[in-house]
């Protein structure tokens, strides 16, 4: 019997914030499916450890520590993806929560607010701009990690929530603008998870009742099997009990 429908062709992904939490879980899931990976995070030691572990699954892993708010670093990441020859998936996961405990907007230090906007909004758009030719050639998918806080209006969540709300609008707009280029764009609210960021949002509180980020794997398994254009423009909740393809 011949392999009419071979899946041996390699896929490649770029994941930001990949050294821990949700980003690490996504990167590991992809590595175990033999994706080639470009990974970034600010903590060089942690990132190196993750990359070493993921290399054992056989794909190429290019780990580049750095700050996604720096244009030079973003160029470096996309050049690394170019060296892999394709880019099927860009996961804009790196996020800044802002000061912990989280201040009310009336007291929010504006330099901190600018920093949160740079990480959560400007950097994802910057990466999409640079990666567009590669995404286009691979008919790829952009995933922007959003949050329940995007719609909440919760006290203390104003800085972070505002950037995620803006990122949701960026996702919907890009979905429309890039449809002609056959690039899909989605927003994903992963839900509450037991991560460092969630702990920073609730300093000193016991968050052990929240599930580990692995709880989102069924969603990623499904999303990555979809035609990027079929899901483009949608906002998903990874822990929901149904995920619908937009009509």
């Amino acid at each position: 019997m011949t392999n009419r429908n071979s899946y041996a062709m390699r896929n490649a992904a770029l994941v930001t914030g990949a050294s821990r939490g949700l980003g690490k879980v996504i990167a590991t899931f992809l590595a175990r499916q033999s994706y080639d990976l470009v990974l970034t995070a600010r903590g060089a030691a942690e990132l190196k450890e993750v990359a070493g572990e993921l290399e054992s699954y056989g794909g190429r892993v290019l780990a580049l520590p750095g700050d996604v708010t720096e244009a030079r670093h973003r160029r470096q990441l996309v050049e690394a993806a170019e060296s892999l020859g394709r880019l099927d998936l860009l996961v804009n996961n790196a996020s800044a929560l802002g000061p912990s405990p989280m201040p009310a907007l009336a007291d929010y230090p504006l330099d901190e607010l600018r920093r949160v906007i740079e990480v959560n909004l400007v950097a994802p758009v910057g990466l999409v701009q640079l990666a567009l030719p590669l995404l286009c050639a691979s008919r790829g998918l952009v995933v922007n990690i959003s949050s329940d806080a995007a719609a909440g209006g919760y006290e203390g969540w104003g800085g972070y929530g505002a950037t995620k709300s803006a990122l949701d609008l960026v996702s919907r707009t890009l979905a429309n603008e890039l449809r002609g280029d056959r690039v899909g764009v989605v927003s994903v609210d992963p839900g509450d998870m037991r991560t460092q960021m969630h702990q920073d949002a609730f300093p000193g509180e016991d968050i052990s009742d929240r599930p580990l980020p692995e709880v989102t794997l069924p969603f990623w398994g499904w999303l990555l099997g979809q035609d990027p254009l079929a899901v483009s423009g949608a906002r998903f909740q990874a822990q929901a009990d149904r995920w619908e393809v937009p009509a």
């Binding site: 019997m1 392999n3 899946y7 499916q33 033999s34 580990l212 794997l217």
Partner: peptide
């Protein structure tokens, strides 16, 4: 290729099938 067990249902696995 055995990828990872299903969270909360360890008897079920994500598998990647290379072939038809």
């Amino acid at each position: 290729h055995f990828v990872t067990p299903y969270p909360g249902l360890p008897r079920l696995w994500f598998v990647r099938l290379d072939g038809d």
